[in-house]
Amino acid sequence: MQHFIGRHAAAEPGSGDADAGSSPLPDPLPNPLPNPLPSPLAIRGLTVAYHRRPVLWEVAYEAPPRGLIAVVGPNGAGKSTLIKACLGLVPKVAGTVEAFGRPIGEQRRRIGYVPQRESVDWDFPVSALDVVAMGRYGRIGWFRRVSRAHKEAALHALERVGMADFARRQIGQLSGGQQQRVFLARALAQEAQLYFMDEPFAGVDAATEHAILDVLRDLDAAGRTVVCVHHDLQTVGGYFDHVLLMNTRVVAHGRVATTLTPELLARTYGGQSQAFAAALPARQDARP
């Protein structure tokens, strides 16, 4: 019944949505035919403000049933905030976020999260395996210890990112890329269906980049949805199927090939777009 939600249908009355519909975009409405399966992620009228300055303004987005999705935009566009608001980590001024047709807060088991590497203290006295096992805590439940089976699941997740040899290593003694892989392994250990990742490729070495990419493709092949904040326009086309261009508002979204155009990038990045647009084409059609 809620399939015909427009980009400001869920906005609060009187919240100034008069200009929200004025941006001349390729039709942002989802397919008007009733969808048999609810979208993995449906964001409606999402507005977030820090100290009264809007960071997200009436963001509406419905993720396609499958595929890897890049969230792209300039610094301060609210990309990380979008992820955090979806996960309930920052308070919403307005709007709803649903995963698989139900409020996202009721779906914790199906959601995985890779925060930015800088968000934690890597000097903390835990091993890589300990950190990955934290991804299982939601399944283990209150008061119970981490059982052998959960430890094995965590070790398996470390294997998938090529970090099994470092399981016992204290996390501060890993390189930046290795730390990023530990975070990714932790998300894998969550065995989620919808993943949010905040700049997993930021500042990592080539080996880590390949490891992350392999994992993303495995997740995609297994039918998982990955929403990934990504900063490198050169690789968006090579790594992702879909892109969400945003700058406080949603500028455009769709398949990378049709959405990552110089005009839309110019609208996303404003004045700084020329250099990005020039750097763009090369690897756009690397993904089928």
Binding site: P115, D121, Y137, G138, R186
Partner: peptide, 12 residues
């Protein structure tokens, strides 16, 4: 203590 954000997303 280590990662309050992840804890919140797990329902802790």
């Amino acid at each position: 203590t280590f990662d309050p954000a992840l804890a919140s997303t797990l329902g802790i």
